[in-house]
Design a protein around this nucleic acid. Structure first.
Length: 363
DNA sequence: AATACGGGGAT
DNA sequence: ATCCCAGTATT
């Protein structure tokens, strides 16, 4: 009789057990020393689809450079991208910057305090709005992230991994969070449990504060929940990276095929068929030859085959290239300057390959 | 309801 | 290798 009861929602004892565990064993995170909406917001955006250990160094550099939302709003997009380079999902950085500017122009740099209002801001969706509202503003609204779905799937022995269960999980969390005194702690505790105890593989059920009420554990079925979601198919993309040098300067661009890298500076990247057309239209551009340096780069949804083409180029040729590529973002930057900047991981690999050529003269 | 969008940690 | 991470915006 107690079984069906505990599955419908958390009672005070269960919420208490979870939060006590959390208080005793939570990891230290820079943003856990504050309830500043700015800090919480930044940490949540950076943490989207990104493990906490990866986020921390980026967060510290960011907060050091932009200690408040006004300084972020005033920064150039380039400065923001530089601090984001390497973290991935670069659209997050653009939307973060837009959001900062929007709040500074319209609301004196203040965050709205309700989930509903937060949800309307750029880059802030269902999860992030609930996280900020609960942690920074004490609103009793549950978060639904990958951890919550996994933990709850196991506790209820119910398949909750699919998209259509999102609303159901949200409702369960919104109900259960009422059993807690602190919605922010409740949400963080749930996620922390998923990250540290109720892990995707080999969960540590023996130390789990929810062991007693966990249906999957009782049935010995922790590995059956949640059922894996189907994976995006990985498509191939064949690219040529143009490492073009003029008088010691390097040609860079902010465009890339398939909205890759969301405007972060790169050497020009063009699809192979585009390059073939280009090398016919532009006599000075040599065709890709067999022994061109090549590399591979994996994204979650793409396998990139990249040939790295190094060549010296004249200024008149750069103007031709702009026209034929229809790329108005091309510009020359000194090697010195660019070498030191943070780069996307793909760019680091391209750069390394270009620099270590036996015949190339680029350092 | 699907798909696009990075990069890396963990096993 | 494979899975998946404190998801969001856009088809």
């Amino acid at each position: 009789m107690k079984n069906t009861k505990v599955t419908s929602t958390f009672n005070n004892d269960e919420a208490e057990a979870l939060i006590s565990w959390f208080e005793a064993s939570k990891r230290s995170m820079p943003w856990r020393t504050t309830r500043s909406p700015y800090w919480i917001w930044l940490s949540e955006i950076m943490s989207q689809q990104t493990q906490i250990s990866t986020v921390i160094p980026y967060f510290l550099r960011f907060i050091d450079t932009f200690p408040n939302i006004q300084s972020l709003a005033k920064a150039s997009q380039d400065q923001v991208f530089e601090l984001w380079a390497g973290l991935g999902y670069y659209r997050r950085a653009r939307l973060l910057h837009e959001c900062a500017q929007l709040l500074c122009e319209n609301l004196q740099g203040r965050f709205p305090s309700t989930r509903k209002e937060l949800l309307s801001l750029p880059g802030i969706g269902r999860y992030t709005s609930a996280a900020i509202a609960s942690i920074a503003f004490n609103e009793f609204v549950g978060v639904v992230d990958g951890n919550v779905k996994r933990v709850l799937s196991r506790v209820l022995a119910k398949d909750l991994g699919q998209n259509e269960h999102e609303a159901w999980v949200q409702a369960w969390m919104d109900r259960s969070i009422q059993a807690s005194d602190s919605p922010g702690d409740f949400n963080e505790a749930f996620m922390e449990l998923g990250a540290r105890v109720c892990t995707p593989k080999s969960p540590s059920c023996s130390i789990c504060p929810l062991q007693k009420i966990c249906s999957a554990h009782h049935r010995g079925q922790t590995n059956e929940f949640p059922t894996p979601r189907r994976r995006a198919k990985v498509r191939e993309l064949r690219l040529v990276a143009l490492v073009l040098e003029n008088n010691g300067d390097l040609l860079i661009s902010r465009e890339a095929p398939s909205s890759l890298f969301a405007g972060v500076a790169h050497v020009p990247l063009v699809e192979q068929h585009t390059y073939s057309r280009l090398s016919k239209e532009l006599k000075w551009l040599s065709p890709v030859h067999k022994n061109e340096k090549a590399m591979e780069h994996e994204l979650s949804h793409r396998r990139l085959h990249v040939e790295v083409h190094c060549q010296k180029i004249l200024e008149t040729e750069i103007r031709e290239l702009c026209t034929h590529l229809d790329d108005s973002t091309l510009e020359l930057t000194s090697y010195e300057r660019f070498q030191r900047k943070p780069k996307t991981t793909l760019f680091k690999k391209v750069w390394h390959l270009a620099s270590t050529s036996s015949k190339s003269k680029t350092p």
